[in-house]
């Protein structure tokens, strides 16, 4: 554990808190991509299968929180707040993301075991799971401030894992090419968003695409 990873994980928790807070206080899930949320649940379920055979207090607790909160968000979106979700603006073709991640996972896992292939699948899928959400923001051309805070916190989480990997490489020669390449791709996908977030939202203006 180091400060970068801890901060990254905290940002991840904060992003989930912001999302659930936004939905429960406004009683609406407008502006949130159901497809991205469903992909995240798929990511957590396929990555955290090791809950069944490994236990570490910090990791196991976080894994259960991520799976549980993700399932709760999907419950809110398909149950109580379903009328506020507009599928007509949530049209990103997720089958290509799932297909691409599945192909990469089958071709280049560290070991050809079900758990390793699913873990690799989850790493690739997570790197692109935000795309339906970003696509939705791009289509509507604007986003509620709270939604932008959510996307920022989620992006900051993986961005902070990069200095974590550099730190781990320098202190214990940790080197996991898959996590690192996918993590960098994930962070790059957020970069445009980060730029607009910094230049607009943090200066008190509305998030609107130029």
């Amino acid at each position: 554990m180091n400060i970068f990873r801890l901060a990254g994980d905290l940002f991840h928790l904060i992003s989930i808190f912001i999302l659930i807070h936004k939905m429960t206080t406004s009683k609406s899930c407008s502006g949130i991509s159901f497809k991205s949320q469903a992909l995240y649940l798929l990511v957590y379920v396929t990555r955290y299968l090791d809950l069944f055979w490994t236990f570490a207090l910090y990791n196991s607790t976080m894994k259960i929180i991520f799976i549980g909160s993700s399932a709760y968000v999907l419950h809110l979106m398909t149950g109580p707040f379903k009328p506020t979700h507009d599928p007509n603006i949530d049209t990103f073709k997720v089958r290509y993301l799932i297909g691409g991640a599945a192909i990469l996972a089958l071709l280049f896992p560290y070991k050809w075991t079900p758990a390793e292939v699913l873990w690799t699948f989850s790493i690739w899928l997570e790197s692109v799971a935000i795309l339906p959400q970003l696509f939705m923001v791009q289509r509507t051309g604007a986003a509620e401030t709270i939604t932008t805070h959510y996307i920022f916190a989620l992006g900051a989480y993986r961005a902070l894992y990069i200095p974590n990997w550099i730190y781990r490489y320098l202190t214990s020669t940790f080197w996991d090419p898959l996590s690192i390449i996918a993590g960098v791709i994930q962070t790059v996908l957020y970069s445009d968003f980060f730029y607009i977030y910094y230049t607009k939202v943090l200066q008190g203006r509305k998030f609107e695409l130029p």
Binding site: R5, D9, H12, D50, T54, A56, N59, M62, K63, F66, Y110, K111, E116, W119, T120, Y161, N164, F174, W175, D176, P177, L178, S179
Partner: peptide, 10 residues
């Protein structure tokens, strides 16, 4: 295996 080290991350 590289992924064993990565498994201690989230």
């Amino acid at each position: 295996v590289a992924s064993d080290a990565a498994k201690d991350e989230l």
